[in-house]
Amino acid sequence: MTDVQTQPAISTAQPEDFFQLLKPRVMSLVVFTAATGLVVAPGSINPLVAAIAVLCIAVGAGAAGALNMALEGETDALMRRTRGRPVAAGRVKKNDAMAFGVILSLFSVMLLGMNANWLAAGLLAMTIVYYAGFYTLLLKRRTPQNIVIGGAAGAFPPVIGWAAATGQAPWQAWLLFAIIFLWTPPHSWALALYSAGDYAKAGIPMMPVAKGAKSTRLQILLYTLVFVPVAIAPAFVGLGGLIYLVVSVAGGLGFLGLALRLYRSRAGDEPDKAEAVGREAALYDVRAQAKPARDLFAFSILYLMALFSALLVEALSGLGA
């Protein structure tokens, strides 16, 4: 009875809470990579069509994030990194988040189809279903390879951007896909190495939980060995120019060095400080031994941004290959 009386009669969720459902940080990366795919693609596109297309891709990605948070509310509540999310914290009801995600998905896909073309719209719809359905509902809790296969969802935006500009998705677009796809495992596992306790508590078989820290560090290094050459490849196939070559090689060597340092470290062998006392972790609030993992995680974001920035700058300035 008391519970009923203390519950608000209607939702007190604020617009900001709904904005948080869209995962704005992820959305900014999606906007950036989709815009790059769109600008790098051959031919010209009306700037207004391009802007609406990028907006649709961003909203579609945000909708997938909202569906993910709606479906994962209980799990998110168990982890320090995610327990402040609107559904996990109880500020937005699960059904409201679900409805929000579904409506935005439909609107963004329809508008992209009308504005650009139905190939791009189809790819966006597939990305949403892939992330919210295939990854969140099926993969995440079943296999330590969850992030490898699920990482494809985050790799689609440049292909969608390219398709929006040209109506096609040639192999050059899929090379951009491959860069993000191969970047995802080292990036996510570096984070998982110092948050393994959280994932274990939530029952998610992330690689460090399922196979241990040592195996994860080795797999990060192996993925990096494949990822760095693929990241440099656009400079040799006519997608990137000299700026891209310099950025991708210099950054790639840095990435490889950090992955090697992480492999030789003992990162993830013990829980980090914040995890031990169960509070929010600041950027470097980890055990000294976990610092190589935090460094690689932070650098991986910087490297991906640098790669796509180089492509974007070259395409916009005409300095590209």
Binding site: P8, A9, I10, S11, T12, A13, Q14, P15, F18
Partner: peptide, 18 residues
């Protein structure tokens, strides 16, 4: 059902954004 000022404010803000 009587709504609190906080609930009314939140609903109004959501409606404006919608």
């Amino acid at each position: 059902m009587r709504l609190t000022p906080e609930e009314l404010r939140a609903r109004k803000r959501r409606n404006v954004w919608i």
